[in-house]
Nucleic acid binder design. Structure first.
Length: 328
DNA sequence: AATCCGGGGCT
DNA sequence: AGCCCAGGATT
Protein backbone atom coordinates (compact mmCIF):
# COMPACT_ATOMS: atom_id res chain seq x y z
CA UNK A 1 0.00 0.00 0.00
CA UNK A 2 1.55 3.23 -1.20
CA UNK A 3 0.91 6.69 0.25
CA UNK A 4 1.13 8.92 -2.79
CA UNK A 5 -2.37 10.37 -2.53
CA UNK A 6 -1.47 13.60 -0.75
CA UNK A 7 1.42 14.44 -3.10
CA UNK A 8 -0.79 13.68 -6.07
CA UNK A 9 -3.75 15.77 -4.89
CA UNK A 10 -1.50 18.71 -3.96
CA UNK A 11 0.02 18.58 -7.43
CA UNK A 12 -3.42 18.37 -9.00
CA UNK A 13 -4.77 21.40 -7.15
CA UNK A 14 -1.87 23.51 -8.40
CA UNK A 15 -1.47 22.17 -11.91
CA UNK A 16 -4.73 20.88 -13.31
CA UNK A 17 -6.38 22.34 -16.39
CA UNK A 18 -9.65 24.09 -15.67
CA UNK A 19 -12.07 21.71 -17.36
CA UNK A 20 -15.20 23.79 -17.69
CA UNK A 21 -17.60 20.85 -17.75
CA UNK A 22 -16.60 19.93 -14.20
CA UNK A 23 -16.73 23.35 -12.59
CA UNK A 24 -20.44 23.31 -11.79
CA UNK A 25 -20.48 19.66 -10.67
CA UNK A 26 -23.83 19.34 -12.38
CA UNK A 27 -24.40 15.58 -12.79
CA UNK A 28 -26.01 16.18 -16.18
CA UNK A 29 -23.03 18.10 -17.52
CA UNK A 30 -20.56 15.64 -16.00
CA UNK A 31 -22.49 12.80 -17.64
CA UNK A 32 -22.59 14.34 -21.13
CA UNK A 33 -18.92 15.33 -20.97
CA UNK A 34 -17.84 11.88 -19.82
CA UNK A 35 -19.73 10.17 -22.64
CA UNK A 36 -18.26 12.59 -25.17
CA UNK A 37 -14.78 12.04 -23.73
CA UNK A 38 -14.88 8.25 -24.18
CA UNK A 39 -12.01 7.31 -26.53
CA UNK A 40 -11.86 10.99 -27.47
CA UNK A 41 -9.41 13.75 -26.58
CA UNK A 42 -10.69 16.53 -24.37
CA UNK A 43 -9.78 19.21 -26.92
CA UNK A 44 -11.76 17.34 -29.57
CA UNK A 45 -14.98 17.03 -27.57
CA UNK A 46 -14.97 20.48 -25.95
CA UNK A 47 -16.64 22.42 -28.79
CA UNK A 48 -19.23 19.66 -29.09
CA UNK A 49 -19.92 19.86 -25.37
CA UNK A 50 -20.41 23.62 -25.39
CA UNK A 51 -22.83 23.47 -28.31
CA UNK A 52 -24.74 20.55 -26.78
CA UNK A 53 -25.27 22.21 -23.41
CA UNK A 54 -26.28 25.44 -25.11
CA UNK A 55 -29.05 23.70 -27.03
CA UNK A 56 -29.94 20.97 -24.52
CA UNK A 57 -29.60 22.42 -21.01
CA UNK A 58 -31.09 19.51 -19.08
CA UNK A 59 -32.01 15.83 -19.19
CA UNK A 60 -35.62 16.47 -20.11
CA UNK A 61 -34.64 18.49 -23.19
CA UNK A 62 -32.52 15.53 -24.36
CA UNK A 63 -35.33 13.05 -23.73
CA UNK A 64 -37.68 14.88 -26.05
CA UNK A 65 -35.11 15.97 -28.65
CA UNK A 66 -35.44 14.60 -32.18
CA UNK A 67 -32.94 11.84 -33.09
CA UNK A 68 -31.90 13.66 -36.26
CA UNK A 69 -30.97 16.74 -34.27
CA UNK A 70 -29.03 14.68 -31.73
CA UNK A 71 -27.08 12.97 -34.51
CA UNK A 72 -26.34 16.35 -36.08
CA UNK A 73 -24.97 17.61 -32.76
CA UNK A 74 -22.79 14.47 -32.61
CA UNK A 75 -21.66 14.59 -36.26
CA UNK A 76 -17.89 14.11 -36.49
CA UNK A 77 -17.38 12.86 -32.93
CA UNK A 78 -17.59 9.18 -33.86
CA UNK A 79 -18.91 6.14 -31.99
CA UNK A 80 -22.44 7.26 -32.71
CA UNK A 81 -24.08 4.65 -30.46
CA UNK A 82 -22.94 6.87 -27.59
CA UNK A 83 -25.43 9.47 -28.77
CA UNK A 84 -28.23 6.95 -29.17
CA UNK A 85 -27.57 5.66 -25.64
CA UNK A 86 -27.62 9.20 -24.23
CA UNK A 87 -31.18 9.60 -25.47
CA UNK A 88 -32.24 6.17 -24.17
CA UNK A 89 -30.68 7.03 -20.84
CA UNK A 90 -32.36 10.45 -20.71
CA UNK A 91 -35.77 8.91 -21.36
CA UNK A 92 -35.17 6.33 -18.63
CA UNK A 93 -34.17 9.09 -16.20
CA UNK A 94 -37.37 11.01 -16.97
CA UNK A 95 -39.53 7.92 -16.57
CA UNK A 96 -37.88 6.33 -13.53
CA UNK A 97 -35.90 9.02 -11.72
CA UNK A 98 -38.06 12.14 -12.18
CA UNK A 99 -35.72 13.65 -14.76
CA UNK A 100 -32.46 13.19 -12.86
CA UNK A 101 -29.56 10.76 -12.90
CA UNK A 102 -29.39 8.33 -9.98
CA UNK A 103 -26.63 9.11 -7.45
CA UNK A 104 -24.65 5.94 -6.86
CA UNK A 105 -22.20 4.10 -9.11
CA UNK A 106 -24.25 0.95 -8.67
CA UNK A 107 -27.46 2.59 -9.94
CA UNK A 108 -25.70 4.52 -12.72
CA UNK A 109 -24.18 1.27 -14.02
CA UNK A 110 -27.63 -0.02 -14.96
CA UNK A 111 -28.21 2.82 -17.44
CA UNK A 112 -27.48 2.49 -21.18
CA UNK A 113 -24.08 3.81 -22.28
CA UNK A 114 -22.84 4.10 -18.70
CA UNK A 115 -20.14 1.55 -17.84
CA UNK A 116 -17.77 1.18 -14.88
CA UNK A 117 -15.63 4.20 -15.73
CA UNK A 118 -18.43 6.64 -16.48
CA UNK A 119 -20.54 5.49 -13.51
CA UNK A 120 -17.54 5.95 -11.22
CA UNK A 121 -16.72 9.36 -12.69
CA UNK A 122 -20.25 10.73 -12.28
CA UNK A 123 -20.71 9.27 -8.80
CA UNK A 124 -17.36 10.48 -7.48
CA UNK A 125 -16.95 13.82 -9.25
CA UNK A 126 -20.55 15.06 -9.14
CA UNK A 127 -21.76 13.35 -5.97
CA UNK A 128 -18.65 12.71 -3.92
CA UNK A 129 -19.25 8.98 -3.66
CA UNK A 130 -16.13 7.08 -2.60
CA UNK A 131 -15.75 4.89 -5.71
CA UNK A 132 -13.11 4.44 -8.41
CA UNK A 133 -13.22 5.68 -12.01
CA UNK A 134 -10.71 3.63 -13.97
CA UNK A 135 -10.02 4.88 -17.48
CA UNK A 136 -7.03 4.53 -19.81
CA UNK A 137 -5.06 7.13 -17.87
CA UNK A 138 -5.56 5.30 -14.58
CA UNK A 139 -4.55 1.98 -16.17
CA UNK A 140 -1.34 3.58 -17.46
CA UNK A 141 -0.46 5.40 -14.22
CA UNK A 142 -1.04 2.34 -12.05
CA UNK A 143 0.70 -0.09 -14.41
CA UNK A 144 3.77 2.13 -14.02
CA UNK A 145 3.44 2.84 -10.28
CA UNK A 146 3.30 -0.92 -9.62
CA UNK A 147 5.46 -1.98 -12.58
CA UNK A 148 2.75 -4.25 -13.96
CA UNK A 149 4.00 -5.72 -17.23
CA UNK A 150 1.14 -8.10 -18.00
CA UNK A 151 -1.21 -7.38 -20.89
CA UNK A 152 -3.65 -4.73 -19.67
CA UNK A 153 -6.12 -5.56 -22.43
CA UNK A 154 -6.82 -8.81 -20.54
CA UNK A 155 -9.85 -8.71 -18.24
CA UNK A 156 -7.93 -10.26 -15.34
CA UNK A 157 -5.18 -7.62 -15.41
CA UNK A 158 -7.66 -4.78 -15.67
CA UNK A 159 -9.49 -6.23 -12.68
CA UNK A 160 -6.23 -6.47 -10.76
CA UNK A 161 -5.55 -2.78 -11.39
CA UNK A 162 -9.11 -1.84 -10.38
CA UNK A 163 -8.53 -3.59 -7.06
CA UNK A 164 -5.34 -1.60 -6.51
CA UNK A 165 -7.21 1.62 -7.26
CA UNK A 166 -10.07 0.65 -4.93
CA UNK A 167 -7.55 0.08 -2.11
CA UNK A 168 -5.98 3.47 -2.79
CA UNK A 169 -9.13 5.57 -2.52
CA UNK A 170 -8.90 8.51 -0.07
CA UNK A 171 -11.72 9.96 2.04
CA UNK A 172 -15.08 11.01 0.66
CA UNK A 173 -13.95 14.64 0.93
CA UNK A 174 -11.01 14.02 -1.43
CA UNK A 175 -12.45 11.43 -3.80
CA UNK A 176 -13.43 13.89 -6.51
CA UNK A 177 -9.97 15.48 -6.61
CA UNK A 178 -8.24 12.11 -6.36
CA UNK A 179 -9.96 10.46 -9.30
CA UNK A 180 -9.45 13.54 -11.44
CA UNK A 181 -5.85 13.83 -10.25
CA UNK A 182 -4.84 10.37 -11.49
CA UNK A 183 -6.38 11.10 -14.86
CA UNK A 184 -4.78 14.53 -15.08
CA UNK A 185 -1.40 13.03 -14.17
CA UNK A 186 -1.90 10.55 -17.00
CA UNK A 187 -2.86 13.33 -19.39
CA UNK A 188 -0.07 15.79 -18.54
CA UNK A 189 2.87 13.92 -16.98
CA UNK A 190 2.50 10.14 -17.12
CA UNK A 191 1.80 10.26 -20.85
CA UNK A 192 1.95 7.23 -23.17
CA UNK A 193 5.24 8.04 -24.90
CA UNK A 194 8.23 9.85 -23.38
CA UNK A 195 6.66 10.28 -19.92
CA UNK A 196 7.82 13.44 -18.14
CA UNK A 197 9.05 11.64 -15.02
CA UNK A 198 11.28 14.54 -13.95
CA UNK A 199 8.10 16.56 -13.31
CA UNK A 200 6.15 13.76 -11.65
CA UNK A 201 4.83 14.50 -8.14
CA UNK A 202 4.74 10.79 -7.24
CA UNK A 203 8.04 9.74 -8.77
CA UNK A 204 9.39 8.48 -5.44
CA UNK A 205 6.53 5.98 -5.22
CA UNK A 206 6.92 4.66 -8.76
CA UNK A 207 8.28 1.14 -9.34
CA UNK A 208 8.53 1.38 -13.13
CA UNK A 209 12.03 0.74 -14.43
CA UNK A 210 11.13 1.61 -18.01
CA UNK A 211 7.87 3.59 -17.74
CA UNK A 212 7.78 4.32 -21.48
CA UNK A 213 7.30 0.60 -22.16
CA UNK A 214 4.25 0.34 -19.89
CA UNK A 215 1.43 -0.50 -20.02
CA UNK A 216 1.98 -3.52 -22.24
CA UNK A 217 -0.79 -4.19 -24.73
CA UNK A 218 -1.08 -7.07 -27.18
CA UNK A 219 -0.77 -6.06 -30.82
CA UNK A 220 -4.01 -5.31 -32.59
CA UNK A 221 -5.20 -7.21 -35.62
CA UNK A 222 -4.69 -5.76 -39.08
CA UNK A 223 -7.49 -3.67 -40.49
CA UNK A 224 -9.80 -5.20 -43.05
CA UNK A 225 -10.02 -3.37 -46.38
CA UNK A 226 -13.40 -2.77 -48.04
CA UNK A 227 -13.95 -1.30 -51.48
CA UNK A 228 -16.95 0.92 -52.21
CA UNK A 229 -18.26 2.76 -55.21
CA UNK A 230 -20.58 5.63 -54.40
CA UNK A 231 -23.12 7.10 -56.81
CA UNK A 232 -23.90 10.65 -55.83
CA UNK A 233 -27.16 11.60 -57.51
CA UNK A 234 -27.69 15.26 -58.31
CA UNK A 235 -30.80 16.96 -59.71
CA UNK A 236 -30.67 20.73 -60.25
CA UNK A 237 -29.21 22.08 -56.99
CA UNK A 238 -30.13 19.06 -54.87
CA UNK A 239 -28.18 15.97 -53.77
CA UNK A 240 -29.61 12.54 -52.97
CA UNK A 241 -28.80 11.46 -49.41
CA UNK A 242 -29.48 7.96 -48.06
CA UNK A 243 -30.14 7.17 -44.42
CA UNK A 244 -28.00 4.25 -43.29
CA UNK A 245 -29.27 1.18 -41.43
CA UNK A 246 -29.96 1.65 -37.73
CA UNK A 247 -27.36 -0.96 -36.76
CA UNK A 248 -23.72 -1.40 -37.70
CA UNK A 249 -21.10 1.11 -38.75
CA UNK A 250 -22.30 4.75 -38.83
CA UNK A 251 -25.82 3.60 -37.93
CA UNK A 252 -28.58 6.10 -38.59
CA UNK A 253 -26.33 8.62 -40.28
CA UNK A 254 -26.61 9.70 -43.90
CA UNK A 255 -24.51 8.63 -46.87
CA UNK A 256 -24.87 8.22 -50.63
CA UNK A 257 -26.21 5.52 -52.97
CA UNK A 258 -24.04 2.47 -53.52
CA UNK A 259 -25.93 1.15 -56.57
CA UNK A 260 -25.90 2.67 -60.03
CA UNK A 261 -29.02 4.68 -60.91
CA UNK A 262 -30.96 3.95 -64.12
CA UNK A 263 -31.39 7.26 -65.88
CA UNK A 264 -28.12 9.15 -65.91
CA UNK A 265 -27.93 12.34 -67.97
CA UNK A 266 -24.25 12.88 -67.28
CA UNK A 267 -21.60 11.27 -65.05
CA UNK A 268 -18.49 12.80 -63.57
CA UNK A 269 -15.82 10.75 -61.82
CA UNK A 270 -14.76 12.26 -58.49
CA UNK A 271 -11.40 12.06 -56.78
CA UNK A 272 -11.14 8.76 -54.85
CA UNK A 273 -10.60 8.73 -51.11
CA UNK A 274 -9.51 6.22 -48.47
CA UNK A 275 -11.15 6.57 -45.06
CA UNK A 276 -9.53 4.79 -42.14
CA UNK A 277 -11.65 3.61 -39.22
CA UNK A 278 -10.11 1.75 -36.26
CA UNK A 279 -11.03 -1.69 -37.52
CA UNK A 280 -11.64 -1.23 -41.27
CA UNK A 281 -10.53 0.86 -44.25
CA UNK A 282 -12.94 2.07 -46.89
CA UNK A 283 -11.31 2.51 -50.29
CA UNK A 284 -13.90 4.59 -52.09
CA UNK A 285 -14.47 5.70 -55.66
CA UNK A 286 -17.40 7.94 -56.47
CA UNK A 287 -19.38 8.98 -59.51
CA UNK A 288 -21.41 12.17 -59.54
CA UNK A 289 -24.53 11.34 -61.55
CA UNK A 290 -26.74 14.07 -62.98
CA UNK A 291 -30.27 12.65 -63.06
CA UNK A 292 -33.58 13.90 -64.46
CA UNK A 293 -35.84 13.64 -61.43
CA UNK A 294 -35.87 14.07 -57.68
CA UNK A 295 -37.84 13.07 -54.59
CA UNK A 296 -37.98 14.19 -50.97
CA UNK A 297 -34.59 12.62 -50.23
CA UNK A 298 -32.87 15.19 -52.45
CA UNK A 299 -31.56 18.07 -50.36
CA UNK A 300 -29.74 21.28 -51.07
CA UNK A 301 -26.19 21.63 -49.76
CA UNK A 302 -27.51 24.17 -47.30
CA UNK A 303 -30.15 21.75 -45.96
CA UNK A 304 -27.53 19.01 -45.65
CA UNK A 305 -25.09 21.20 -43.79
CA UNK A 306 -27.81 22.45 -41.48
CA UNK A 307 -29.83 19.32 -40.72
CA UNK A 308 -28.33 16.12 -42.15
CA UNK A 309 -25.84 14.14 -40.04
CA UNK A 310 -23.12 12.91 -42.38
CA UNK A 311 -20.00 11.14 -41.06
CA UNK A 312 -16.47 12.32 -41.84
CA UNK A 313 -15.97 9.35 -44.18
CA UNK A 314 -18.13 11.03 -46.83
CA UNK A 315 -17.03 14.62 -46.35
CA UNK A 316 -14.33 14.68 -49.06
CA UNK A 317 -17.03 13.71 -51.58
CA UNK A 318 -19.54 16.18 -50.17
CA UNK A 319 -16.90 18.84 -50.65
CA UNK A 320 -16.39 17.89 -54.31
CA UNK A 321 -20.14 17.90 -54.97
CA UNK A 322 -20.37 21.31 -53.37
CA UNK A 323 -17.61 22.63 -55.62
CA UNK A 324 -19.34 21.20 -58.69
CA UNK A 325 -22.66 22.83 -57.79
CA UNK A 326 -20.96 26.10 -56.98
CA UNK A 327 -19.17 26.27 -60.36
CA UNK A 328 -22.36 25.53 -62.25
C1' DA B 1 -12.67 -13.26 -24.38
C1' DA B 2 -12.89 -11.16 -28.67
C1' DT B 3 -14.98 -8.02 -31.67
C1' DC B 4 -17.42 -3.98 -33.03
C1' DC B 5 -17.75 0.93 -33.10
C1' DG B 6 -14.95 7.02 -35.35
C1' DG B 7 -12.10 10.23 -35.83
C1' DG B 8 -8.07 12.81 -35.41
C1' DG B 9 -3.57 14.06 -33.54
C1' DC B 10 1.10 12.59 -32.32
C1' DT B 11 5.35 10.09 -33.07
C1' DA C 1 2.21 3.63 -40.29
C1' DG C 2 0.87 2.68 -35.98
C1' DC C 3 -0.65 4.07 -31.48
C1' DC C 4 -3.57 6.34 -28.45
C1' DC C 5 -7.42 8.56 -26.61
C1' DA C 6 -11.14 10.45 -19.36
C1' DG C 7 -14.99 3.01 -22.99
C1' DG C 8 -19.23 0.39 -23.56
C1' DA C 9 -22.18 -2.95 -25.92
C1' DT C 10 -22.56 -7.08 -28.25
C1' DT C 11 -21.48 -11.67 -29.55
Amino acid sequence: MKEFQKDLIDWYIKNHRPLEFRLKKDPYEIWISEIMAQQTRIEAMLPYFKRWIQQLPDIESVAKCDDEKLNKLWQGLGYYSRCKNIKKCAIECVEKYSGKLPCTKEELLKLPGIGPYTAGAIASIANGQRVSAVDGNVIRVFSRLYNIFEDVTKTSVKKQIEELVDESLPSKEEISYYNQAIMELGALICIPKNPRCELCPVKKYCDAKDPGSLPYKAKKKMRKIEYKHLYILVHKDKVHVVKRADTGLLAGLYGFDETKPEHIIESIELEPYIHIFSHVEWHMDATLCIVDREDSNYKTVEEIEEHIAMPSAFMPFMKQVKEYLWKK
